[in-house]
Amino acid sequence: MQWSFPMIVIVVVLGLLGIGFYGLLIVRNLIKVVVALQVLAKGAMLALVLAGELAGQIYIGDSMAITLIVADTIVAVIGLALAVQVRRHIGSLDIGHLSKLRR
């Protein structure tokens, strides 16, 4: 079986998504959770670029990807800012300690 370029990218996208979700499920450090989220988003970004490629409209795909990077960075910044506050006021970055609100 011939490995075409899109298929390789798809595998990478799926890999990034898998790693990202896996990270979200098992990682306990809040900083690492944010990193896992970033991995997820990078998978989506790659998918956008690939979509532009496959649709024959590379510029649109790229501009979407760039927009995604911006949005994603903002989310990461907010996530990290929250992490700083969490460390300061709760005293731990372990998300296991972030489970007071339940039931």
Partner: peptide, 28 residues
């Protein structure tokens, strides 16, 4: 508030990534 914020950000961002994937598929 911090705990709620963290959960909200992470879960929303997950959803948001899924939407982007959907857009990529439709665009393709």
């Amino acid at each position: 508030a911090l705990e709620a914020g963290v959960k909200y950000v992470i879960q929303s961002a997950c959803g948001s990534v899924l939407v982007v994937l959907g857009i990529a598929l439709v665009f393709t």
